[in-house]
Design a protein around this nucleic acid. Structure first.
Lengths: 220, 220
DNA sequence: CCGAATCCTGTCCGATACTG
DNA sequence: CAGTATCGGACAGGATTCGG
C-alpha cells in the first residue's frame, strides 16, 4: 500500500529525490523562489507543463512540507502557492546545481528563460573574487516583475521588488539582460538593438557585469 | 524527432535536469563518486534498480558527458564506469542537496545506506565552525571498501583508500558508523553492542564526531 | 559470472476537453 | 480562474534469456 514510489534508501539525498525527484517538481520550486504564485501564473511560467501534472506536483510538494497554500493578500482574491521555510532553503541547492550545470558541454543559451530562472542564474554565476570592492545597486524591470540586485562586501543579493534609490535601472526581458551581463561587453549589441533600456549610471551596470563568470564547459 | 524528453527551458538548472533528472540517474552518479564501478557492482549498491534501467541510465549519462567507460586496471578484466571531470564536480551539488535534505521533516534514519551515500553524508553534515582547531585522521573499513577521513584546518576530506598512519581505525558497517558519529555520544551503544570495532585512539573518533551537526528538521 | 537485450506489466506523464 | 476527467503513449520495474 505504498502511496508513492520510493528509492527506499537511507541516504538523505535519495530521500530528497523521493520528494522532489518527480518531473517538473524542482522547476515549480524554482518559480516559487521569489514569492507566491497562483496556479495559472505557474502554468504560464512553465511552458509545457500539463495542468493535471501541476496539480499533482503541488499536492506532492505540499505533503512533503516544501510548499504551502496561502491566501492572496490585498486586492486579489483567491489562493496562491508559497514556499515554506524549508522550501526557501532550497535556493542554495538550486544555486549550486545551476553552477554545475553551467559547465555542461552541451548548454544552450538560445532558449527562453523565466524571470525566476534568470535571477537564480545570477546567483549561480556570481564570483566572490571578482566582486571584491564592488558596490552596486541595480534595479531590473522585467516583464514578469521587478527585482533589486545589490553587490556589496563580496556578496550578491537578489530580491523581488524595488530599491528606493537605485544607481541604475534596466528594463527589458531577462534573455537580453543575461546576454549583456555574461557577454563581458555590456552596452554592446543588446543595448544598441534597443531590446534593453537603461536609465541611470551605465558604468554601474558594467561593474555589475564584471562580477559574473561566463558559463564555460568543463572538459575531460 | 526529439530523441529525449526535454523541458526546453533556457535555465541551466533545467537543462541539467534534462540530463540527470531521470529516475535513478543521480543515484548512479552518487555511487560512482568514489571511484569506478562495474555494472554488477552498481546493481548491488542500488537495490531496486532494474538492469535495463541501469543500462539506459549509463548510456544517457555517458552521452551527457557525465560518465565514461574505462578499462578495468590490473588483474580484473572487463570494463567499468567512471565519472568524467564534470561528473566528479557533481560532488558539491550532491553535498549541498544532502544538507538540505537532512532538514526534511520526514527524514528516516532506519533505512540501509550504501558506503558512498554514507561518505557523502559526512560532507553534508560537516560543520566548519565546529571543526575549528580539530585535526584528526581516521580510517574506515566498511564492507564495501576503505575510506580515509581527515579533518584539518576546518576542512573535511573523504577519500577512498587508506592512510599510512591513521590515528584511529573503525571497522563495521556504515549505518552503525553514522549512528555513532551523529548521536553526539560516540563510544556508546553501537560500540558496546559490538557492531563497530575501533582500534587506536578512541578520543580521536570522538573529536571527529564533534565536527558534525545532527540532522534536524526545519519547521515552518 | 558479467553485461546487456528482450519480453511484459503497471505506473506515470502529456495533451485535450471539460466542470465548479 | 482553478483545477478535474480521461485517454493514449512513454517510461519504469521485474523476470527471463542470450552472448562473452
Amino acid at each position: 500500500m505504498d502511496r508513492k514510489r520510493s528509492y527506499d534508501d537511507g541516504c538523505a539525498f535519495a530521500q530528497a529525490l523521493d520528494l522532489v525527484g518527480e518531473r517538473w517538481a524542482l522547476l515549480v520550486v524554482r518559480e516559487l523562489m521569489f514569492g507566491p504564485l497562483r496556479f495559472t501564473d505557474l502554468r504560464e511560467r512553465l511552458p509545457g507543463i500539463a495542468s493535471n501534472v501541476l496539480t499533482q506536483r503541488l499536492a506532492g510538494l505540499e505533503e512533503a512540507g516544501i510548499v504551502r497554500q496561502v491566501d492572496l493578500p490585498r486586492p486579489a482574491r483567491g489562493k496562491a502557492y508559497a514556499l515554506t521555510a524549508w522550501g526557501k532553503a532550497f535556493r542554495e541547492p538550486l544555486r549550486v546545481m545551476g553552477a554545475w550545470a553551467s559547465a555542461s558541454p552541451q548548454l544552450r543559451f538560445d532558449k527562453p528563460l523565466s524571470a525566476a530562472a534568470a535571477m537564480l542564474s545570477l546567483s549561480s554565476m556570481f564570483d566572490r573574487d571578482k566582486a571584491a570592492g564592488v558596490s552596486v545597486a541595480v534595479d531590473l524591470r522585467l516583464p514578469d516583475g521587478d527585482f533589486a540586485i545589490r553587490v556589496e562586501g563580496g556578496c550578491l543579493s537578489v530580491e523581488p521588488g524595488r530599491t528606493p534609490d537605485p544607481q541604475c535601472v534596466v528594463s527589458g526581458d531577462q534573455n537580453a539582460l543575461l546576454a549583456v551581463l555574461y557577454a563581458g561587453k555590456p552596452g554592446s549589441t543588446a543595448l544598441a538593438a534597443g531590446t534593453l533600456a537603461v536609465e541611470g549610471d551605465l558604468d554601474k551596470l558594467a561593474e555589475l557585469a564584471g562580477t559574473f563568470r561566463a558559463p564555460e564547459p568543463m572538459l575531460g
